[in-house]
Simulated assay, not measured.
Amino acid sequence: MADDMTHSPVRFGVLGTGRITRRIIADLQSTPGATVSAIASRSEERARWHADSHGIPVGVEGYQELLSRDDVDAVYIALPPSMHHEWTLAACEAGKHVLCEKPVALSADQVREMIDAVNRVDVRFLDATAWLHHERTDQFRQWLTTVGPAEDSVKAAAKKDDLFSDEEDDVAAIPFRLGPLRHLSASVSFPNPFLDGDHRLHADLGGGALLDLGWYSVGLVRFASGRLPDEVYAHAVMRGEIIARVSATMIYADQLTATVSCGFDTSTRKWFEIAGQDASIVCDDFTRPWADKPARSWVHEASGKVHSFVPPSEVGVDEATADASANEPNSGRCQQERVMIGTLVDWIRQGSECGEEKPWESFYRQALDTQIMLDALQASIDRGEPVRLNSPEV
């Protein structure tokens, strides 16, 4: 299949017709090298209605029926989280590549089985955590290279870099260093906008704030630290059967600490602070840039100096033009979902030609570790006490 896809578009089939599919279908259709050939629902009438609405050639009744089609190379799984594990395994059995909505599954054991399955049949898998693919996130990755001892940061700081448009004196060097990481903080929330029947209101479907929004806040902590904490302690506010809000602390072996917050009953927040000994990175919209503002972030040095950054595609974008160009495919601004889809398309096209380099493995590890941390937070909520991640019960 990989050889056939070297030049042909990767044909996606969509499993599910929920609200989130509308945006991602448009992104799939707008990403070079990708197309949408079919969409499936439990109802033939609903599948055909969505196919007609989105300009998709075929509407299919039943998810297995879509997986058996010869005109589908990859699937986008937009089903409730409780169904991600089952249909990822089914897609692997059918030899289809997978783009899966988040949270990836209901437990770390399920994520492990999903990763084992894609590796066993040599298909590609990517969770639809789009912020990890934004151009601005590449800046964060570069800045995190300066967390080591001073002598180790010299090489990173000397590396040519053109991302810092507001630094006129020396754009060839990262103009600060974070120093050793001390504290990480991430908060993601929004007031409940759900319609009746939304899966996020049902615990048995994977609903609740911990899985739905904790995937982002916990994922940010994993992204910044690159590892698992030793211990977590979480508290939850319940709304009936689901978790409406979570606050948690995390402790690492080297005295790094972290706090995360997520909730369905709090004003919209999507911010983080990565605090090092010498500087801190701050971002107020990391999950998705505000529509009416350029993607931005700040670095606060211990001296009080503040650097304000935007990624290259946002240079020259101001608030007056940001909203109008936010979703324009030719605006030049980074469209994180399309970059994410393009990444998966590239992996599929590479096939076995990538050799020993397997860039998807770092994303698998990010997803698995995020789920391990979420499992530990749920265990702490259930027990009402701190939980160590090396415990056999976690």
Rank of each mutant, 00 (worst) to 15 (best):
R227C: 10
R288D: 09
S189W: 07
V111P: 02
L374P: 12
M5C: 03
D122S: 11
R296Y: 00
L184W: 03
A320P: 00
G226S: 04
A51H: 03
M1Y: 08
Y76Q: 14
C100H: 03
A244F: 01
A367S: 14
E356R: 09
R245C: 05
M83F: 10
F363N: 02
G179A: 14
T146N: 05
D212N: 08
D127F: 02
D170L: 05
F286Y: 10
G316A: 09
D254R: 02
R349L: 04
V310E: 14
I381F: 01
P32S: 11
Y252T: 07
R269K: 09
Q336L: 13
K159Q: 13
A376E: 13
L374Q: 08
T129P: 00
T321W: 02
A34H: 02
P32M: 15
P80M: 12
E168S: 03
L15T: 08
S187L: 10
F264P: 12
A156H: 07
R365M: 11
V111S: 06
S297V: 01
Y233W: 09
T88L: 10
R222M: 05
G316E: 06
M1D: 07
L67C: 13
W347M: 05
D116Y: 00
P359D: 06
G276N: 11
S331M: 05
V246I: 08
K358W: 03
A173G: 14
I115L: 13
P80Q: 08
A172Q: 14
F194D: 15
K155V: 09
L89S: 06
V394K: 00
R388P: 00
F125E: 07
R19G: 13
H50S: 04
L220W: 06
D318L: 07
E356N: 04
W271R: 09
G18T: 03
P289Y: 08
P311F: 04
V345F: 12
R200H: 13
I24W: 11
D382W: 00
A244D: 15
S303K: 08
A324N: 01
E273N: 15
A172V: 13
A367V: 11
I77M: 15
R245E: 15
T146K: 04
W131L: 03
M83C: 04
S41R: 01
P9F: 01
R48C: 09
I348F: 02
S225F: 02
L210S: 06
T35K: 03
S68Y: 00
